[in-house]
Design a protein around this nucleic acid. Structure first.
Lengths: 348, 348
DNA sequence: TTGTAAGCGTTATCAT
DNA sequence: ATGATAACGCTTACAA
């Protein structure tokens, strides 16, 4: 590897150096390394050989500037609350894997920060050309305005929620289907009295699940006393409390469905604490297919969210938008899969 | 906001347009927006006013190219296993917040991917000028080679582990102190028979904690039968099994310390399942200060990891390296804090 | 398939 | 405090 001298503190060979060394033009070198356009096989090999000899490395910074793209996609996520979750991780992985095929990379942006709430962050990041597009994870209702604004500025997709603005692309789990699966499952085990632990009201998926539960119960012609619906807020400790409350009812249900695994796990803990056996004395199920659902004893019946798939679909919707000239709007509803475990069993 | 026409598909005003409109030079405009150099107050105001009028937005892509920096820091983390953890989230947040002050942003890179294992990913990202520096989260022993190689290429810091290569900067929790806190705590409650649930051998922090436990027990002159040390592997279900094993011993310990919260929680679950009361019949404690530690009943005694602080310190070490001409090596050992809860109590 | 020319929008450097 | 000028290393657009 020879050393090359250059002005302004730069080191390393450039395409121009290779051009000079091979007698070709800069453009041919560019074609070789960017994979664009066609280059004769011999030529390509000669270029690559010379590049190796000179220790050339492609300068993405220059390429991106010239192209006017950063190859970066902002991934909006609430650092406070969502960043360390399996939910985030699964979707992020799925999206990143899909985007990698287009040489795109995700960069997490904090939607719980003040700057985001002002709309400063996301919008200016787009405007300043720091990201080419934006993917937003499970925005809350209160984020609606910012989502809509960002959408005006750049290619955007929402994942894990369904935005009210009808021309925004989104990918989400089929929450109705998930809840139907669980209710059907419980009913097929003979359960008639099924209680529900709801999720937080600001989370649209949770609201959807709550409505779906009521509908599913009605569909089966079952009764649903108001006391059978408790608030769990997606938390373990609240799931515990909700279970305690429900178990103390005179007309105790035989099955318990929670809006997510965490509250289901809390409920199960309380059930055990009260000397009852989950899956025997009372059946329990949740939504998520979380790590803990498989770790506890008895294992928790749950509808597994297809997180990676969800992320990948969202990525595809975004890519469509970035490639198509017209702003294509796409939506994806992905179905989860029921994994029945020991926490749910025949009615006793 | 006027519209400005430009060649090659570009839109929006540039510094040159503002220069023309104000009669100043491009450089003065640049000084205003980059915050570098000095500009008279009046001049600055005039520039900003005109910029607003023209709808000018700073083009970071161009600025970064000109400066030769991406303002991006690669954050190496195992997507498989660590990405969805509180541990990752806390450190990431702390680091990102600190780096934001220098206009630096983190971008997660998957160290569990094949490309990383080949050394392709990290190294080429640095070489191709896609990132200015690298922070690596809790690399495993097997990652040593890649860590060392990356270190040759760019400013780098390791967080959540102590690299063997002595000229690499790192920030880590004081694991020895954490374990000492827990042992001291148990001893102060009157416990003489203390068992330990270890972590995985590939995780250097876990190994350090294991050694620290043995040392701390010795320091107090207590006995430590080999059966008092079980493997928990940082998992809930294994923590359960470990507890079962330990509780079946003829000479049953009165206290149980786990290498992390997850296995401690599993142990506590098993204790409850066997009809014993944690904090009364047997005391339990972990390390992490995790969300779940505060959610379960009884709440779990734990040493809270100062994750955000850890991330911030690591960020500072990296910033030092990026600014200083010489490669400064710094190390930071951050102490956690014991939070005693109901899971640990006086020996009965 | 390969080449020529003209940027892309900012910052470094040196001068005034 | 401000200006003139030359990069920075690549890609687009068009020509051969």
């Amino acid at each position: 590897m020879e050393k090359i001298k250059r002005k302004r503190g730069t080191e390393g060979a450039t395409m121009e150096d290779i051009a000079a060394a091979t007698g070709l033009s800069k453009m041919t070198i560019s074609r070789v390394f960017s994979g664009t356009g066609s280059v004769r096989k011999e030529t390509r090999e000669r270029v690559i050989e010379e590049a190796d000899r000179l220790g050339y490395v492609y300068n993405a910074l220059a390429g991106n500037f010239s192209r006017g793209k950063t190859q970066l996609i902002g991934f909006g996520v609430r650092f406070d609350g969502l960043l360390g979750s399996e939910y985030f991780a699964g979707i992020y992985r799925g999206a990143q894997n899909r985007l990698a095929k287009e040489d795109l990379r995700l960069i997490p942006l904090d939607t719980s920060s003040r700057e985001y709430q002002n709309g400063e962050n996301l919008m200016s990041l787009v405007a300043q050309r720091r990201v080419d597009g934006v993917m937003i994870l499970a925005p809350l209702e209160q984020d609606e305005l910012i989502v809509n604004q960002t959408f005006e500025e750049a290619p955007m997709v929402v994942v894990g929620a369904q935005p009210s603005h009808s021309s925004i692309s989104w990918a989400d789990m089929d929450n109705v289907h998930a809840i139907e699966c669980l209710v059907d499952h419980m009913v097929s085990l003979g359960h008639q009295k099924i209680a529900y632990i709801a999720g937080p009201e600001q989370v649209s998926d949770a609201v959807t699940r709550g409505r779906a539960f009521i509908d599913a119960i009605k569909k089966h012609g079952l009764e649903l006393p108001p006391e059978y619906i408790a608030n769990g807020g997606f938390h373990y400790s609240i799931g515990r409390l909700a279970a305690k409350q429900i178990l103390s009812l005179d007309d105790r249900p035989t099955a318990l469905i929670a809006a997510n695994d965490l509250s289901a796990l809390g409920a199960m803990d309380m059930i055990k604490e009260l000397g009852l056996v989950p899956g025997k004395d009372i059946s329990v199920a949740g939504v998520d297919g979380s790590y803990m659902a498989g770790e506890v004893t008895p294992a928790l019946t749950s509808v597994v969210q297809p997180l990676e798939q969800l992320g990948a679909r969202a990525a595809e919707l975004l890519i469509e938008q970035m490639q198509g000239d017209t702003s294509v709007v796409g939506t994806q509803l992905v179905r989860g899969e029921l994994k029945a475990k020991e926490s749910s069993g025949n009615v006793s």
